[in-house]
Design a binder for these strands. Sequence first.
DNA 1: TATTGTTATACTCTATAACTATA
DNA 2: TATAGTTATAGAGTATAACAATA
Lengths: 155, 155
Amino acid sequence: MTGGKPRASGRVSLAQAEDHSLDAFLQLMRVQQKLQRQMERVLDGAGLTLPQFDVLANLGMVEGITQQELAERLLVTKGNVCGLLDRMEAAELVQRRPDPKDRRANRLYLTRVGRAALQAAFPTHLGVVQECMSVLSGAEQRTLAQLLGRLDVGD
Amino acid sequence: MTGGKPRASGRVSLAQAEDHSLDAFLQLMRVQQKLQRQMERVLDGAGLTLPQFDVLANLGMVEGITQQELAERLLVTKGNVCGLLDRMEAAELVQRRPDPKDRRANRLYLTRVGRAALQAAFPTHLGVVQECMSVLSGAEQRTLAQLLGRLDVGD
DNA sequence: TATTGTTATACTCTATAACTATA
DNA sequence: TATAGTTATAGAGTATAACAATA
């Protein structure tokens, strides 16, 4: 966001205590946007949107969760998930099954088609990710993941 | 994306050469999503969407650019920018002025209202950013910005 | 009363592609 | 021919809020 790749200011400073929060934030938004667009292009070939791929990837890891649980994982509202699932169920990618123990809830499962779509899309997705991240060393990638992980708290 | 906060695997490894690209990628997508939602909530109080704030912030830095230049900065299409500007012009936030030297082009300017909106929203925005990023030291923020900057290259 | 899911509403953003005017 | 901008089309995703069924 706030376009234009941030660059180092001309003024060199020796101080460690400077605030770089805005730099980091802008760069984060910008890089994510680029990566997201790229992922969308890749997934488009598989007929999937990014949120749909996220649903598949989540169910690939933890099948049988409820819609509410999925909503929490995706960081969206339950109404949102409902529409998302409507479209994906129409595309035969996922299946809602009533929970026998709690008749309010649905348990979510991949269909055969959904599993195939995930298995087809994931390697390509991973390949693109690895290629994008390959400008960083493994250690740098780890550092990046750790720093981001520290930001991934609360709320 | 692909919900569930990634965590260190139980298996401890001494190798430096491991690939952490997916970890970093997932964490990047996830953190950005959280930050974006938070920014949207903040901006909603000012009646702005995130893309609209981006337009204001860009024009605040480099007024007089063309729609095409703005599209490139925002990493979106020109058709997209056109609609965005339609809404923002209707809200009196920005103004299109025909370029006298190139009668195909428009030059973009903030209105008084747009400038006021930017000046009102920016400090709050910055405050939220600083608060979010405050779990990292200044040096860590710098490292994060630098690592991300390395990822921010050609498409 | 609280929770799960659904529905209704509404809007922004996004892309693609065809089109106009100008360079 | 190429570029700047517009328009038309289309759809997904998102939120909010009110509603139903169940716990």
